[in-house]
Nucleic acid binder design. Structure first.
Length: 571
RNA sequence: GCUGGGGUAGCUCAAUUGGCAGAGCAUCGCAUUUGUAAUGCGAAUGUUGAAGGUUCAAUUCCUUUCCCCAGCUCCA
């Protein structure tokens, strides 16, 4: 049996149950989705969580009655009459949107629904389902439309499959970066600081430092130059860049001595002014400016989500100023940079999207076309499969988004490459060509990791908190067997720290088993147990997160082993 | 921002129809000196997110506000 058909049919059964319990409810749509289904209802009184049980009970009755799903086709006018009788105004709206003369109707028991199908034969074929949650959803997904109440559920062929799915969801919740972040003391959020503003704790700050250090060096290797700009800039520059016209709702603005300022939501203007600070030759291009730029954006409160969507974040941002002819090649280099980086961090699965010109945008059509072609050609040359996201580009240019998938197949947009003809025009950027005449360069805006916040969140989820050695804030915990071995443990700590290994000493007066358990939960890569035996010959008993007990190893050998393991990862 | 659900000790959660706010973990103290996933005993811990209101009495009811969660809309 096809799961999506089963789920879609289950959504009809749910709608049938809802109509039986609350006859005044108006039906929206009820499709199957990945992992389940939903149905949208317009109802004056909101559903309460307990209502889900009532609906489930009614659904069981419908399933027991084993109603047939009967399909019929009819002329649109006929269908409209039918739904007028039942007062389903949204169904009539839908019929009018469907092309062609006829529509199909499905009937199970007394319940009638506009539906393309297909469906299962009868309601009795549904063996296991569960209603999961209630949420609001705009009709047709448009913010200004009335809000419906959506009930989410899922269905499987067997109880066992359903149980597996629910267990998987439970596992996913455990590796939620927000849970791990708190449990492993990486970061926190505070009411008194404000929504969407991150406080990094020592472990989170160390992880961030490691990522920053890595990505900065990678940029230098690839010919980028470091620049640094301020966090606030006068509004004038944002008016000039167009941000005030297209992005103002997302910006924090304020006054200093009567002058208008804004906290930067993007880093481009600073980089543009560095470019503009002197006359540029075609020989200088491409020029690549890189900045770990901290930006603040006034994201709507409802969209904030742990580290994955925040109001203050740091981008690994760079702007490449180049000739038009260089654009494609530079885009390819950036794509390679992204792929190499994702590979180092252990992400193997990603998807690529190309976003085109949005309704609100600056620049002329030819330039947008040229930018689009540069991006799509680069993708084709890299043999990357991509989908097109119409109208989803930045206001100054089209873009490639690379969304990476975590271990649970959830997608996070991190890297993006934007091709921009408009800002160089607005700021009057030029370079002197071979013939001594002035020309307009183009600009590529790009991030590799996206933001350190989002990337860190994705990393934590991807590894379920068990970071690989080179990223782990604490690489090894030294555990003395008893206080008798504390002085040797301190010697080990000193030696490892001096050799660049990030260590912690667990000096608590607890039993060995307890300490091992605690650090197992902390997911530390190595535990080094030291007792009288180890102290006698300068060794360590190594317990690895990945391999379990590794036996006695001489201290120097362990140091070499760790260095080698890190080198192999980060070449 | 919108719809709905929440906020109780550092963390995870209890607390009948409004009637003295509790437990486990963590913390601290004492004992124990431990060899690969939880040693025992004891102690301390709260403006119940905040402000206002109703009431003899509010964690519980009402209003406002902040923050969190799910989804929608929007994004790195």
């Amino acid at each position: 049996m096809d799961l999506s058909t089963l789920r879609h049919s289950t959504s009809h059964i749910m709608a049938q149950a809802v109509k039986a319990l609350w006859p005044d409810v108006k039906l929206g749509i009820g499709p199957s989705i990945e992992d389940g289904f939903y149905y949208d209802f317009e109802k004056s009184e909101p559903f309460e969580p307990q209502d889900l049980e009532k609906i489930e009970e009614k659904m069981h009755e419908i399933i027991s009655a084993d109603y047939k799903f009967e399909r019929s086709e009819m002329k649109k006018e006929e269908a409209i009459k039918l739904f007028k009788k039942t007062n389903e105004k949204y169904k009539i709206e839908l019929i009018n949107e469907i092309p062609g003369e006829t529509v199909s109707i499905y009937k199970n028991g007394k319940f009638i629904d506009l539906c393309r199908g297909p469906h299962i034969d009868s309601t009795g074929q549904v063996k296991s389902f569960k209603l999961l949650s209630i949420a609001g959803a705009y009709w047709h997904g448009i913010e200004t439309n009335p809000m419906f109440q959506r009930i989410y559920g899922t269905a499987f062929e067997t109880e066992g499959d359903l149980e597996n799915y629910l267990n998987l969801m439970e596992e996913a919740r455990k590796r939620d970066h927000r849970v791990l972040g708190k449990q492993l003391e990486y970061f926190s959020f505070h009411e008194e600081i404000g929504a969407g503003l991150v406080l990094y704790h020592p472990k989170g700050a160390m992880l961030r430092y490691i990522i920053e250090d890595f990505i900065r060096k990678e940029h230098l290797k690839r010919g980028y130059q470091l620049v640094v700009g301020p966090h606030i800039m006068k509004s004038d520059i944002w008016i000039k860049s167009g941000h005030f016209g297209y992005y103002k709702e997302n910006m924090y603005v304020f006054k200093i001595e009567g002058q208008d300022y804004a906290i930067k939501p993007m880093n481009c203007p600073g980089h543009i002014l560095v470019y503009k600070s002197k006359t540029r030759s075609y020989r200088d291009l491409p020029l690549k400016y890189f900045e770990l730029g901290t930006v603040y954006r006034n994201e709507k409160s409802g969209v904030l989500h742990g580290l994955l969507r925040v109001r203050g974040f740091t981008q690994d941002d760079a702007h490449i100023f180049c000739l038009r002819e260089q654009a494609e090649e530079e885009i390819i280099k950036v794509i390679d940079f992204v792929m190499d980086t994702l590979n180092v961090f252990g992400f193997e699965d990603f998807s690529v999207e190309l976003s085109t010109r949005p309704a609100k945008s600056i620049g002329n059509d030819e330039d947008w076309d040229a930018a689009h072609h540069a991006l799509s050609n680069a993708l084709k040359k890299k043999y990357l499969r991509y989908s097109v996201n119409e109208g989803d580009g930045a206001f100054y240019g089209p873009k490639i988004d690379i969304k990476l998938k975590d271990a649970l197949k959830r997608e996070w947009q991190c890297a993006t490459i934007q091709c921009d003809f408009a800002l160089p025009e607005r700021f009057g950027l030029t370079y002197v060509g071979e013939d001594g005449k002035e020309y307009r360069p183009i600009m590529l805006h790009r991030v590799i990791l996206g933001s350190l916040e989002r990337f860190t969140g994705a990393l934590l989820e991807h590894f379920g908190g068990a970071l690989p050695l080179w990223l782990a804030p604490t690489q090894a915990v030294i555990i003395p067997v008893s206080e008798k071995s504390l002085s040797y443990a301190k010697k080990v700590e000193k030696a490892l720290t001096e050799n660049g290994c990030r260590t912690e000493l667990d000096y608590r007066n607890e039993r060995l088993q307890k300490k091992i358990r605690d650090h197992e939960i902390e997911k530390v890569p190595y535990m080094l147990i030291v007792g009288e035996k180890e102290a006698a010959d300068g060794s360590l008993s190594v317990r690895s997160k990945a391999q379990g007990e590794m036996g006695r190893v001489m201290m120097d050998d362990f140091i070499q082993m760790v260095k080698k393991e890190i080198q192999e990862k980060v070449k």
